[in-house]
Design a protein around this nucleic acid. Structure first.
Lengths: 208, 208
DNA sequence: AAAGCGTGTGTGATCGTTCATTCACATTCT
DNA sequence: AGAATGTGAATGAACGATCACACACGCTTT
């Protein structure tokens, strides 16, 4: 099972840089190779041998750096997720208004998607299988969004409705566009679309 | 690799009914079982044995009905996709305006998602791997949407912009919410949200 | 009615391959 | 020297797929 992700886009990520390992190290090379393969074929669609061959080491050497394939996949996801959260926290502060929060979330996603498409693609497809139901108790962008939306409803800034639903609709505006970008249906860098997305999301949130 | 799809939701589909085979037949039982497993674990995450056990036949018997696992997965996807398209064509006519078209697309997705969550979930995750790049030359809801958006831009009904981008943003409103529904983050039946989605999508499309 | 026969369906052993993982051993770094 | 890193053969399990065989029919021929 193989996807049709834009291959040139996947290579646009930080080349010698891994996620956990220091740049240039074998560990980093493994992570980078695994990330690209996981993004393109899914964790189950990639074998250890395949990852090893992609970074020119033997399959046995993989286990010097990771306990198992599952552990590698998990470590990668967690690192990317943490990175996404920290990007988000860089852009948002508690006293921000709704629109500023929306812009911060949008910005975090767009910047990650452009800076490291493979990481973003993997995060996008894996988030439902590893993050799961409230895996970290709402420490994901969508939950943050839902809380902020809820608050804005309380103040009457936007019409009252199911905050979780509105959060889904809002996230969808950005995430679906990002997915299109990964598959080459859109070619504009997402970072150029931050205001477009923010406006779109705000428009959705203002509907009754 | 397992997702955390709402299991009770997956069982809400037509129980004895398959996709291709006549209701109650072994073929239908295989399709139903495979669909649920594919939706929950991905095609690569499910073995022939697993599907066979789920519908109480031997693994060898699987091949009386399908040439291969890949073929089963492909057949299922195509059938669901065709079904989605026909639901869409039931609701839309060429002379429809933008909003009517949006409502038709939204309705098709919502009705499929509620009538057969497993089929919908599988379609959602598989569409990028099997439908691929313009697999059927734009005969998918999103491409139809993009064309209709393009037309509305030409008449000045909505601001001029990248139609493909706007289509992505519009689809995202519905699809992301549908995904939340599959994972139990939203419990409202999507068919009750058709107007909400239509309003949301229209609001997005009207932004500059 | 009984016997024969083709066809569709189901079984479970079996095939060759690939999988993730381990291990004894070699090499390189510190 | 000793630790870290790399190798590639080996292991057992699981995989997709095939096979010979068996049973249950509807059909014709006796």
């Amino acid at each position: 099972m193989e996807t049709f992700l834009d291959k040139t886009l996947l290579d646009r990520g930080p080349i010698g840089t891994g996620i956990t390992g220091k740049p240039g190290s074998t560990k980093a090379r493994i992570e980078r190779a695994a990330l690209k393969l996981f993004a393109a074929q899914g964790v189950d669609g990639v074998s250890i041998k395949e990852i090893a061959r992609a970074c020119n080491i033997s399959d046995g050497a993989m286990y010097r750096h990771f306990d198992s394939k599952e552990s590698l996949a998990h470590t990668l996801f967690q690192a990317i997720h943490a990175n996404l959260l920290s990007m988000l926290q860089d852009n948002v502060s508690p006293q921000d208004g709704l629109e500023a929060t929306v812009r911060a979330v949008v910005t975090a996603y767009c910047e990650l998607a452009e800076a490291d498409p493979a990481a973003f693609a993997y995060h996008l497809t894996a988030r439902n299988t590893v993050l799961a139901r409230a895996g970290d108790g709402g420490a994901d962008p969508s939950s943050l969004m839902a809380r902020r939306i809820s608050a804005a409803m309380a103040t009457g800034e936007i019409p009252r409705a199911d905050a979780e639903l509105k959060s889904a609709m809002a996230m969808g505006v950005v995430l679906q566009a990002a997915e299109y970008r990964l598959y080459g249906r859109i070619t504009t860098p997402l970072t150029d679309l931050i205001e477009t997305f923010t406006d779109g999301v705000m428009a959705v949130l203002k509907t009754a």
